[in-house]
């Protein structure tokens, strides 16, 4: 596990991928930070909340290669034929991507230092927001890893990962539209002869269910200084599930018929 972690992590820096990701992150966050600085109003927690939007680009970049590249180059054989479980490879690669994600926060830490130097305020919300950020990153990385394990084509993997993350980020809007579509359909078709109020509650139930699944909104509370354990548990447990699915997808190679 550590061997895979070490190789993957160093590999980010042997190839331009890691550097580009860090550079991209520092440009995006730097832009937001310098705007805040110019208005003399510096809230790092808001910056972190804003950066979460860019998961949609940054996560595919750092996860697309994890398995797809190995599959393409044939190096994946090593993982299968070495005396260890493929689970360890999954965990190792996940940790490597997480470590890179943490290193990408270096720009945010530099902003924290500048804020302190410029007599701004760093409070508990800032640290809470970082926690929420990393928990969400863990979930998205595990998703990216799964898409990478499903294909040989890195671009394909990145595109699928992008779409999935975009979907998750927009889940609350999607929930709204889904519930209104359901309400409209029930209304127009008059199916089941429901009363209008129960149609509304049906639509709302669907929306609440979808919203409950939304990790993006769940981890938004940290910005306001509320520290919740449950969203972190949510993100990490689902990250574990996606890692398990990744393991199963890789394991499929052994028994699949094609």
């Amino acid at each position: 596990m550590f061997a895979v972690f070490k190789r993957e992590f160093l590999s980010y820096f042997r190839t331009p991928v890691g550097w580009v990701a860090i550079c991209l992150m520092s440009v995006i966050s730097g832009y937001y930070f310098s705007n805040m600085l110019a208005s003399s109003y510096v809230n790092i927690a808001m910056e972190i909340a804003y950066l979460r939007t860019f998961f949609v680009i940054l996560i595919p970049i750092i996860t697309m290669r994890l398995f797809a590249e190995e599959k393409k180059n044939g190096t994946i054989v090593l993982l299968y034929t070495m005396p260890f479980s493929i689970k360890e490879a999954v965990i190792g690669k996940f940790l490597a991507a997480m470590a890179l994600q943490a290193i990408m926060l270096i720009s945010v830490f530099s902003h924290i230092i500048i804020t302190v130097v410029c007599s701004g305020i760093i409070n508990s919300a800032t640290w809470g927001a970082i926690f929420g950020y990393l928990a969400l990153a863990a979930l998205f990385i595990s998703i990216g890893m799964l898409t990478s394990a499903m294909t040989e084509n890195q671009i394909m993997s990145a595109v699928v990962c992008f779409v999935v993350i975009l979907f998750i980020i927009m889940l609350s809007q999607i929930a709204d539209s889904v519930s209104s579509i359901i309400q409209a359909i029930l209304k127009v078709t008059g199916l089941y002869g429901l009363k209008e109020s129960s149609i509304y509650s049906a639509g709302n139930a669907v929306r609440n269910a979808l919203n409950w699944l939304d990790p993006y909104e769940k981890t938004a509370c940290y910005t306001s200084g509320v520290f919740k354990i449950v969203p972190i548990v949510f993100c990490l447990s689902f990250a574990a599930v996606f890692m398990y699915i990744t393991y199963r997808v890789l394991e499929k190679k052994r028994w699949s018929q094609s």
Binding site: F2, A3, V4, K6, R7, S11, R14, T15, N73, G74, T75, I76, V77, L78, L79, M82, P83, F84
Partner: peptide
């Protein structure tokens, strides 16, 4: 198709393999 990581040096690669093989 030899399972080689083209972005590693020979030594790094063999070191990685020996780590994998414990």
């Amino acid at each position: 198709q030899p399972p080689l990581f083209l972005d590693m040096t020979v030594y790094e690669y063999l070191e990685y393999v020996s780590e994998l093989k414990k």
